[in-house]
Write a protein that binds this DNA or RNA. Structure first.
Lengths: 201, 201
DNA sequence: CCCGAAAATAGACCAGTCGTCTAGTGGCAA
DNA sequence: TTGCCACTAGACGACTGGTCTATTTTCGGG
């Protein structure tokens, strides 16, 4: 009865703990025990809140994307900037969060995408919807940038958004592999060139 | 005995079997037993050829990249093409292998990169060297394309190579997540645009 | 103040993990 | 033959994995 958190957000507490741990070690390599212990929740309780490890993973990804989209939205609607500036500030944010070694805020699409996609159809589907949403929101921002004149829209927004998202996913993966921010810095340069170079002819 | 393969390439047989299985399920999710059973090799033999699962993973990645670079090299030196055509044929090859669902030939950098990089420093280091080699070889090909006039080199080759590699890594990840070749097709379009669009001004 | 039901927990369960170890095979050299 | 060595064989140990049943705790209404 001492350090108990609020009554029934144990579920969310578990998800948050797992995000930290699995964001670092992956899905299969982490046992429920580790998460339960770290969260201070007894093992027996797990199946009261979730119906399996896979169901837990699903919920984890859903919570992650929900939170991600919220912060993303906030970034993309900050006042006093052109849409193009907002775009760049998003990628700049991406660079900083993924370059830092803190286990919080690690992109789960990068960390878990490849591992989980052919392990669980349910989890894959959450990832699919989540990434699609991000690309769509990105495309909307590009359109806004064309509309407010901060960007010259010579290619359709959807495919530009896809290209940028792919670039940054790959750069994040490479950053993990090289343990360096260089790939991300490089992606930033590519992004600028990609956005602000008019297609000739 | 009956189905025994050649005398002592059991080691390689194990690595090949593992490439198939782990290319599908990942590293942590696969036990040595599964690989040994699939390869028809008894457990006792494993530790004669490798000293641990991690050491095995290291050897797996090393063998993978060695083989990869060999085929890569062959592709990039095929006669009767401009260097730019060779570049495109490489990415076109990438598209086909990653889009197909066959477990062979799956890119281990994509599949294992994120999972393994913060699990084993030894494996990360192999991935690091392997990807770097690929980027370097790619850069060399870009330089050759500039030299033979099939490409206009307005940006330095190294950073173009990095950008392309990042793009394709991300596209492959997205292809896994969406179970679709769309992201790869999109990357192909981006690649063409990226390579053949002169930077204006 | 006690009952009944839901919420939460404890701990058993067994299949599976990696890695070790002893015993045994076969072939080759001296 | 004898000794040696690469290799095979698979039982074994200590442990962890996810899961589930049985039990306790909690708590609101009668």
């Amino acid at each position: 009865m001492n350090a108990a958190a609020a009554p029934s957000d144990i579920r969310q507490h578990l998800l948050l703990t797992a995000q930290r741990i699995m964001g670092g070690k992956g899905f299969s390599a982490v046992g429920l025990n580790e998460i339960l212990t770290a969260a201070g929740v007894p093992k027996g309780s797990f199946y009261h809140y979730f119906d399996s490890k896979e169901g837990f993973g699903e919920a984890l990804l859903e919570a992650y994307f929900a939170d991600y989209m919220e912060r993303f939205e906030a970034l993309l609607t900050k006042p006093g900037m052109t849409a193009a500036e907002r775009l760049l500030s998003y990628f700049s944010f991406w660079l900083e969060t993924q370059a830092s070694h803190d286990p919080e805020g690690k992109c789960l699409a990068v960390k878990l995408g490849a591992e989980v996609s052919d392990l669980s159809e349910a989890m894959r589907s959450v990832l699919d919807r989540g990434t699609q949403q991000i690309v769509e929101r990105l495309a909307a921002c590009i359109e806004a940038a064309v509309a407010d004149g901060s960007l010259i829209g010579e290619r359709d927004a959807q495919s530009m958004a896809t290209a940028l998202y792919e670039l940054w996913l790959g750069a994040s993966l490479l950053a993990k592999i090289t343990r360096s921010r260089r790939p991300l810095v490089s992606a930033m340069a590519t992004t600028r060139q990609f956005l602000f170079t008019p297609v000739h002819a």
